[in-house]
Simulated assay, not measured.
Amino acid sequence: MKELGVIGAGTMGIDVTIDALFHGFKVLLIDVDENTLKNAKKKISRTMRMGSMLGLDYKNYSQEQIDEQLILSSDISNVKDCDVIVENICENYEAKEKVYVQLNKICSEDTLFIANTSCISITRIAKNVDNPRRVIGVHFMNPVYLKTTVEVIKGFHTDDEYEEKTKRFITNLGKKGIIVNDYPGFVSNRISHLFMNEAAYVVMDGVASAKQVDDIFKQCFGHKMGPLETADLIGLDVVVDSLEVLYESYQDSKFRCCPLLKKMLDAGFLGRKSGKGFYNY
């Protein structure tokens, strides 16, 4: 389990890669876009060269050490020999469907497929592979390499063998897992996205500023981050995509996306990743 395939070199793929490298894995990071891979390598290197400053037992890595453990590729077939694959692409079912159909053809029948998804049903993802028993969800939280707990989601077909394999994998990352059952949004995002969405409505309606909303959650409730700071960290595009998955899945108006969030996307305000969201970065 020391050779890991990571699909998708966006924010989550980068963080999962950093976490795995810090814990001694060899990582094959895959993305269809070469520029995305180049930018990912810069961000990974920058973080790992300052590992000792993260407040954990990480060390500083040289670029040579990083290059020994990390392989970048736009060819998904390179993950064919990996024991575990973590998929982190966009929160869009059709895009994920294509990836799992490819992985099903490339990988052996016992390769563990981990879906790092915010809201999409693990059971729905698993129907794209011949052996759905080996598909499981692990919802990593940002920043992945600083979090000690993950949400693990069992699909309808996920069996004990692959659940145990997943437990060993996350233990090797220095984490523990809270295992839940599969429904869109699971526990964390089914609840947290209601907070973020309603917080956006509060700002849109002029009830309070983003800072006031977040200060109430931090200073009154003791949260480390407010809902709008969290939305900026995740990426407002991901939040909107997740809300649309939740709305489609449950047909419940409580998940209807706030118009302000969509307006901000149109303006190019995605949060931390673009330098501007509810706050400037």
Rank of each mutant, 00 (worst) to 15 (best):
D83A: 08
E64N: 15
M141D: 14
I89E: 04
G174W: 08
A126C: 01
I191N: 13
Q69L: 12
L54H: 02
N39D: 11
Y162I: 00
E151F: 01
C119R: 00
S242L: 07
N78D: 14
G275R: 05
V79N: 07
I106Y: 06
M264H: 12
Q69T: 08
D215T: 06
E161K: 04
S249M: 11
T47P: 08
K165V: 14
L146T: 11
T36C: 03
M12C: 06
G275N: 07
L236P: 04
H223A: 07
P227S: 14
F140H: 13
N39V: 00
L21Y: 11
S274K: 05
T117L: 02
M225P: 09
S274H: 04
R256F: 15
S188M: 15
N189D: 10
G271Q: 07
R46Q: 12
K263M: 14
P259M: 08
M225A: 12
V202M: 10
I153K: 06
D31G: 12
V144N: 01
G155M: 06
D252T: 07
D130Q: 12
G235R: 09
Y93H: 06
C258F: 12
F221Y: 09
T11C: 15
D19W: 13
V86N: 08
K154Q: 02
I125M: 04
L260R: 04
L21R: 11
V6E: 02
N92M: 07
D241A: 05
L103P: 12
D110E: 14
K43A: 09
T47M: 02
G275D: 00
S118W: 07
V240S: 10
I30S: 02
N116F: 11
A115P: 01
E229V: 01
G5L: 15
F217R: 00
Y100F: 13
H193R: 14
D75V: 10
K263N: 10
A267V: 06
